[in-house]
Design a protein around this nucleic acid. Sequence first.
DNA 1: GCTGCATGATGAA
DNA 2: TCATCCTGCAGCA
Length: 265
Amino acid sequence: MPEGHTIYRYARRHRDLLVGREIIAKSPQGRFRGGAARISGRPLLGVDSHGKHLFYRWHRTETLHIHLGLYGRFRTFKSDPPAPTQGTRLSLHTDEVTIYLAGPTVCELIVPSQEDAIRARLGPDPLQAGIDGNTVAEFATRLERRRIPIGAAILDQSVIAGIGNIYRAELLFLVGLDPAQPANEVAPDKVEEIWDKSVYLLQRGVDEGEITTVARPPRASRDKTDRLYVYQRERFSCRHCGGPISTGEMANRSIWWCSSCQTRT
DNA sequence: GCTGCATGATGAA
DNA sequence: TCATCCTGCAGCA
């Protein structure tokens, strides 16, 4: 579910549905009761995303910060919402729509200095390429400081924001880089290629609503790996060379790659 | 019906 | 490195 493209889509959707409207906020589960009470009945001013973080500006000094983590999800109902499930952390209700949030890692009210700190920690977001500091130069600067493997570095949100486990595997395959290659030893042209491909792939994910990396995916397939090159494809052969797809662990997560197409430089 | 795993991240050890 | 947060679903009985 939530890699950067999903978060970006949520921000866009919620901007359309909620900004400028007076919103009734509640916390059916109770864990965010105090925060919900502080924003309820007031108009939402704006919604922004950076990587996997969402920021809802309610007031000059009152911003709702949400991070979905692995499980978090929103559900939107245009009419007659069902009763919220027991785990619903937050419900947002207008005359036209009801949105439920369940399972987030973070759901908190923060002040501007806290938002600044979060944004400063995050690397550039390929979905905001060219805006503010979201540039290939910033990515290169943050990458060359790291001696960890490139497969760990691009999953680190302080290096590049919004990449998750699927994009990590697919990006490294597309640029032909061994995940074990030390980040600080990746050639400048490869760094640029990673950034350019991440801009393209994340934007494609936003446009299509799912992660597709192959050029021409089968039209109606139930298996999501039909749209991918290496992620969870250890039982298939490499689409380029026909060799085996390797799998292992890196940065606490499973990773897949083709050991003949992806090399160290 | 149950088990284990998943597109995330943190904090303790 | 590992447990934890904690939801949904595929795969299996």
